[in-house]
Amino acid sequence: MRISTQSFFERSAAGMGRLQQKLFQVQRQIGAGTKFLTPSGDPVAAARALGVSQSLAETAQYAASRSRAGQSLSMEESALQSATGVLQNVKTLIVQAGNGTLTAADRGTLATALESQFAELLGVANSTDGNGQYLFAGFKGDAPPFVEQGDGTVNYMGNAGQRLVQVDVARQIAATDDGESVFGAVQGSAMRVPAAAAGNGGSGVFSNVSVADGLNYTVTFNSSATYTVSYVAADGTPVAVGPQVFTPGQSIAVAGLTMQIDGAPIAGDVFTVQDATSAGADVFQAVRDLIGALRVPATDAAAMAKVLNALSTADVKINNAHDNVLTVRSAVGSRLAELDSLNASGEWRNIVDQTYLSELQDLDYASALSEFAQRETNLRATQQTFARLQSIALFNYL
């Protein structure tokens, strides 16, 4: 078979071109560090790699969301820790104020100290997350949630919303708590709150209060010697027990109520024992009422009874508020712990996906370099062979 010179050159050039193209492809793979340069190079692996890349992107987004939620919850936990400390200080001041040797000036000094604690607690309740958003404002994070009015009362201007963050495929977590549930609520197990009516004129002082059922009680003195206990039964029926004979210092025990009243109540004096919510769960109002009671000079037994009764009421309310803040703080801690767990599982999932993605598309450099050397040798040998063959002619042997 005779092969023309032109055909020889064309076939040789085409063969060397193919070898050079394959060598260039391996060289590009080495430069890019990937098994395939385009999806057409390995359609199945490319499709799987796309799915794994999307999973990695979602994992990264969830990790970023958990980071933001963790930052917000950490700042809330810090604020709640401060609130816990303030309420503990208030409880200590209440105990000090109950010292019978204190003068009106001493109680005024304690009231001033309570004013400072009140301001600190209000500042904690209006804490921000560092980005201008108020932690305890619900969805109204751009404005202070607690606003003090001219009369000293504090109004909650936020709402009951919780900012939820998607921290995993099927898990949303609350990154904040609304202020009403923190500073204006109590737990279901909160102590019942005894109180003396503001208009009491006698020197009766309550103590040793307990309730064996879930009812609210009212003790009304008909005279300095008799009283009537009224309540609403579980079936909604109003009940009044009395008049009963009053003996100072002797326990009143009617239905589920036990209460001791010392001193000398007068006709019209009223004492109540209510569940914590009915008695008012606003911690700011509890502190403000206590401050007001300590600032009134106790010049006689009736005035001193008002102070002592106010202290007892405030003590129970502050204890309930303190327990509520601790419960919320515990819930925040649980959410932070859950975020840590989700971060750990997210990191593990990320490692697994990265490993699989590497298996799909990362180049085996040892094999690729070996193939490159082999193809380069083949191309060089082909070129040298072509150079020798094209120089062979009959005239060279004449």
Rank of each mutant, 00 (worst) to 15 (best):
S78L: 12
D142N: 06
N131W: 09
S67C: 08
T84A: 10
F139H: 10
S67W: 03
L73E: 02
G70C: 07
V124Y: 14
L121H: 07
L114Q: 11
T103Y: 11
Q149L: 11
S78G: 14
T109H: 09
L122P: 08
K140P: 03
V86A: 12
N126W: 00
I94M: 08
R68F: 14
L102Q: 00
T112C: 07
L114G: 11
T103H: 14
G100L: 04
E77P: 01
L73R: 05
Y156G: 02
V86T: 14
Q71F: 15
V86I: 07
T128Q: 12
M75P: 12
E120F: 07
N126K: 01
T103I: 13
A104L: 04
R66V: 13
N131H: 14
A111G: 10
Q133F: 14
N99H: 10
Q133I: 10
K140T: 08
N99S: 12
L110P: 06
T109C: 03
G108S: 03
Q96T: 11
G150M: 11
T109Y: 01
G150S: 15
Q117F: 00
L93H: 09
F146R: 04
P145K: 00
Q117D: 09
F118Q: 00
L102D: 02
F139W: 11
N155L: 14
V147G: 15
